[in-house]
Amino acid sequence: MSATVVDAPAPTAMDRVRTFSARRASVLPTLAAIVILVILLIGAQAEFGNFLSPRNLSALLLDHAYLMVLAVGMTFVIVTGGIDLSVGSVMAFTGILGSSMLASGTPVWIVIPVMLAGGAAIGTLIGVLVQYFNVQPFIASLAGLFLGRGLAYVVSLSSIRVENEPILWLQQTRFLIGDWYITPTGIIALAVVAAGAVIMALTRFGRTVYAIGGSEQSARLMGLSVARTKVLVYVISGLCGGLAGLLLTAYSGAGYPRNGIGTELDVIACVVIGGTLLTGGRGYVLGSMIGVFVFATINTIISFMGAEQSWTHIIIGALLLLFIVVQRAIVARSDRRT
């Protein structure tokens, strides 16, 4: 019976490290992602000399705001042990839907809620299939992927320009802090990250998400509201898809039904690289944000080098593999323990 005694005398620095690593082993993958990010940034600066400029770093967030929002939603889903393949096409659908409504003169205060509701509706469909009809998350969200993509083309087969002032304002406005700048889209992305992090860490709903990912059966036997929570994570992911549609529309100044093809894979990769376990139960919204920054940095470095953009996916794929194998080792170790 080896009970750790809390009030041990005068902890040394070594003890503190040990206590930290014992308590917070689940943070390690996220820390690894931060280390990778720092190495990438320093390496890029050493190579190009002008990489760490405020302009360039500000652009990292600006260019990937939509990805960050999607990653937050995906984190909720993956922590429960599920997966959502629909996010890319949901983003395309809501984006083109919003653009088309704006083009036909619908006021923006109607358009934005409709975009969000459209995303949430597809999320609800997936959640209900997963929870109440025992459909594997992979397959249910696959139906969502088809539906979103098809509906995007139903709305329009070609891109629709957006000339609505408030929407364009989201992207064009730059709040300057010295040489740094941030756009409203960037602020929205960071706000979503903050909200996601708070919900996951400080609400009973968020803790239920972790409990389900740890053991759904245990969560149920502990009397937690498993069914509601499982549906809700897909609704949140759908909502994030709708919001990402808005951000991408503002960013590109147009809705385009081919947007976001393969984005679901980028998002999953970012979330995993950020330290979330694909088998569920462990992960952090802030980690996913780091994962998006790693992705963004690799993307930017490759365009700095003038190399093929396809290298991004190869490197992300390799990083993903590395993280999966490491996670597998971690899980295997904790399996042995219990």
Partner: peptide, 15 residues
Amino acid sequence: NLCANLSVGENVMLG
């Protein structure tokens, strides 16, 4: 039937 991924304290108090 607890959640091994969560802390001891959280498992005691969950919900």
